[in-house]
Design a protein around this nucleic acid. Structure first.
Length: 321
DNA sequence: GGCCAGGTGGAAA
DNA sequence: TTTCCACATGGC
């Protein structure tokens, strides 16, 4: 059992974990339990200090990192938030979102876990995605335990009787070995076929997610979009949340609504290509952060109307990256 | 019970 | 090119 404290200014743990980037962290004790890759972690925040505990059983040779660097890296504590916020365009919608979210960070997720989860996300609410993630983990993932507490006396948490069982996201190989029927048993619906096909492509070495990190934004997006169940929206989410492409700007129903209402209130012809061009040019270098702030702000304030005709929304969602 | 959800892929117009 | 529509599921 290792325990650490990290100085974490400009960071809100709860807000970040509740912002629709990642779907498996659960409240426990005064903080949250979850996994970073395969490592079970408990983390809690008090002010500018992040406390974490987790077992470092046998750090494998490929990843000998300490708990502190694992946590810091995952929550992207090195992202210069003040600078990023300063780079946002100055307009009423963006200003409001920035004021609301300025301590929300875009975390660095494991690639397969992020890709698989967002393949399951289409036409699902965040709460449903959490359910699907939990079912996939419990059914196919490896179970671990973690104590939801940080003790002053280092080793005591390890002996805690109040331990939570948490499950790692299943490996590519495990999903690839499953049947579509088994996956549908996790409430995936029509998404099961896509998840299975993508897992099998990756498992059979047709796509190497780690190697794709070397690709340019354009190439990376194109490669991701070749995977079953991955279109422009999912590709941009994976680029943003797993490949640290902070410019990637996913356009989902929430963002589309914000753009329509706040940036193009009177536009008639607002097709997907025009929206895409606008977001790429207007929000700039850290567009992904801007997008995440607009998304989270809209979702948490449930702003204005929510009733747009499905047909209209659908037509814009068609755009290919 | 209808509407909506961090969409995609393929057919029809 | 653009528009339309099927595809599952669960909460409100």
């Amino acid at each position: 059992m290792q325990q650490i404290e990290i100085f974490a200014p400009d960071f809100d743990l709860a807000m970040t974990l509740d912002s629709g980037q990642v779907f498996h962290w659960a409240k426990a004790g005064d903080g949250f339990v979850g996994l970073i890759g395969k490592r079970p972690i408990y983390v809690e925040q008090s002010g500018d200090v992040l406390k974490a505990s987790g077992e470092v059983v046998k750090p494998d040779r490929l990843d000998p990192s300490s708990l502190g660097s694992i946590v810091s890296d995952y929550f992207a504590l090195d992202h210069p938030l003040a600078k990023i916020c300063a780079s946002f365009p100055k307009d009423p919608a963006m200003n409001a979102a920035r004021d609301f979210c300025r301590v929300l960070r875009i975390i660095r997720q494991p690639k397969w876990e992020c890709l698989a989860t967002f393949i399951c996300s289409s036409m699902k609410q965040v709460a449903h995605i959490r359910q699907i993630s939990a079912k996939l983990r419990e059914r196919f993932g490896e179970g671990r335990t973690v104590a939801p507490e940080v003790k002053a006396d280092g080793g005591s948490a390890a002996r805690s009787t109040n331990r939570h069982v948490i499950y790692a996201f299943p490996t590519v190989e495990r999903i690839a070995a499953a049947s579509e029927k088994e996956l549908r048993g996790c409430s995936l619906g029509y998404r099961a076929k896509n998840l299975l096909a993508t897992a099998r492509q990756i498992a059979s070495d047709d796509a190497d997610l780690e190697k794709l990190a070397e690709a340019s934004d354009v190439d990376l997006r194109a490669r991701l979009c070749k995977l079953p169940g991955v279109g422009a929206k999912v590709a941009n989410c994976v680029m943003l949340f797993a490949y640290e492409r902070l410019r990637a700007f996913p356009i989902d129903v929430w963002i589309e609504r914000v753009l329509r209402q706040r940036y193009f209130p009177r536009a008639r012809k607002l097709n997907a290509a025009r929206l895409r061009r606008f977001t790429e040019e207007y929000f700039g270098h850290h567009g992904g952060y801007a997008q995440q702030y607009l998304f989270h702000h809209a979702r948490k304030t449930k702003s204005e109307s929510t009733g747009k005709s499905k047909r209209k929304m659908g037509s814009l969602s068609q755009f290919r990256g």
